[in-house]
Design a protein around this nucleic acid. Sequence first.
RNA 1: GGUGCGGUGGCGGAGAGGCUACGCAGCGGAUUGCAAAUCCGUGUACACGAGUUCGAUUCUCGUCCGCACCUCCA
Length: 445
Amino acid sequence: MASKLKIYNTLTNKKEEFKPIDPAHITMYVCGPTVYDFAHVGNARPVVVFDTLARLLRHDFGKLTYARNITDIDDKIIEASQKSGEDISVITEKYARIYEEDVAALNADMPDIVPKATDYIEEMKSLISDLIEKDHAYEADGHVLFQVSTMQDYGGLSNRSVEDLLAGARVDVADYKREAPDFVLWKPSSDAQPGWDSPWGRGRPGWHTECSAMIEKNFGKTIDIHGGGQDLIFPHHENEIAQSKCSHGGANLANHWMHNGYLTVNGEKMSKSLGNFVTVHELLEEHGKNIGEAIRMCLLTAHYRQPVDFSSDGILQANKQLTKWYNLTQDVTATKPAEEILEALRNDLNTPKAIMELHQLAKDENRKGELLASAQLLGLLYRKFDSDLTVGVLEANAEYEAWLSEREEAKKNKDYATADKIRDRFKEHGITIKDTPDGPKLEFD
RNA sequence: GGUGCGGUGGCGGAGAGGCUACGCAGCGGAUUGCAAAUCCGUGUACACGAGUUCGAUUCUCGUCCGCACCUCCA
């Protein structure tokens, strides 16, 4: 299918026409979580962004293979294990499961492939051997390091030059490194640490190695799209490129590199280290699973390369809007996504514009089917309508029921003083009563 | 210091060289016993300075400010 998709490519810092290697089969890889803790809303942003892109790609091209990895071997995990006394596999399996549940609540489909780092140890080892053979890597003190200066165009993704990196080393350089910017491909493990036998002794892979190995195994040398958060541009993606290119005779690892902006809190990046994070899990616990859709909508209200500021107010506002649309499309059958929406999305995934178009469609009596189909392309309005969609709607309760019928009675007798008194009584309980054509409804304030 | 992304109405947030989205809130009105919901109406905002142009908020340069990466981080 013909598509005029344009995406911003971090490699060139330009918006470019998307040129698939094989238009009949698109390949995309996105960096996933390191599973040792709950994912916060910032971690959820790439999930939602690339899930939305995946939906568009499937719509436009038909076949897409989308991979998102799970890092299940990492120093942070080892640390967590030593702290809690739990086995590493217990920790990683637990948090991988929670991650999948949380992400499902955001209506992000499971990727086609979810490779785990520990399933690719052999592939990583052969990549490392290959790099040593090609004189791009060297062994030192139980480590294997990639020698950055052996690659001429290192730094192309993040616009850094090897000279600058050599000159600007600010951190203490480990003494086994030949040069400051060299990075670890393999590191030794103590007996207490998990490790695998290798030609360089018992050890474990460095962080960047897994993605290169997984991509090669699952897709080959070059994929269409590689995605992740902006904080991965350097050093993670830069180093992936270095490893893969040097091993593959200069072939591009990915033709298009896409990076989403941060989720911020009061203008600052949401992050573990700043402590200003909110986990998806706790939001779901607090507001119910259905709030996941509102979180998704919030994340889509800003363009993916722009920062989006997190606030619970924003989520509630999104929820309100979704409820309106659900009401509007109650008896509607989805038809086809509107051309306006597709056009917006094909322009570097302009989701804010797409949402604006949803508002327009909502105004048009004759385009409800398109509204629904378009929203679903964005991963919204996917649930069957039911009256409990509203967050905070109360369960039936004998006492409240009694008050309600008392009030209905008063209303029937035009005894509005009593009716309003009962409304005030609800108010004191933090509940707002709303008379609708279907009878009174109660909502938490 | 290097690299990148930004500064748009009360808030959120698109956008294009000239036609100045959209949502929320606000205000006015319809409707409602009153509210809620709904519907109608209502707002010329684009950091600053210079330049290019018939015309710039949109292009160029400079200034100021914010955020981020350069160390683990989506």
